[in-house]
């Protein structure tokens, strides 16, 4: 084993890549240590009685492991179910409250005639219509192709 590793080290260093050589050298040494420390993987003879006990015990271990997992899953499931129920209840309550409040009154269109809506600040409708008509005239464009965002009186 030692001889084999040395040969490999020399071969790697020959590749003139020092970091790779160091890395591989360490890896090989680690592997060697691991394999030498590794327990003998020799077949175990087992009596029929022992086999019976191992089989029953093994089957029980599988059930035990699965049972623990099942309990954990039920617990997490219960948490999520409770969370879902809470969210559902909150949603229902919200729906109920929106049903009781009167529907919001639709806003009156502010400046009919122009494309889109225009917000008026301290400007009466009549004056706004006049301003829009003047702008359209000056720009040589039909009014319905212009979009006024807002008209504000500068004081």
């Amino acid at each position: 084993m030692e001889l084999e590793n040395t040969t490999l080290d020399v071969a790697i260093i020959g590749g003139a890549d020092e970091p790779t050589a160091i890395f591989l050298n360490e890896a090989i040494q680690e592997t060697t240590e691991m394999t030498t420390k590794e327990s003998e993987n020799e077949a175990k003879d087992i009596s029929i009685a022992d086999a019976g006990i191992t089989a029953v015990f093994g089957y029980s271990v599988v059930f035990f492991g699965i049972l623990i997992l099942m309990i954990v899953l039920y617990c997490t499931g219960a948490i999520f179910k409770a969370k879902d129920a809470k969210e559902k209840a909150a949603k229902e309550a919200e729906n109920k409250s929106t049903k009781n409040t009167p529907a919001p009154v639709a806003e009156k269109p502010l400046a009919p005639g122009s494309a889109g809506h225009v917000k008026l600040f301290d400007v009466p409708d009549k004056e706004a219509a006049m301003i829009m008509a003047i702008v359209a005239d000056k720009m040589q464009k039909p009014l319905n192709e212009l979009h006024f965002i807002s008209i504000k009186e500068v004081k």
Partner: peptide, 14 residues
């Protein structure tokens, strides 16, 4: 586990 037990009965090692 039954096949494991059966295999031991048939002479296989563990």
């Amino acid at each position: 586990f039954l096949a494991f037990f059966g295999a031991v009965c048939l002479g296989f090692d563990g």
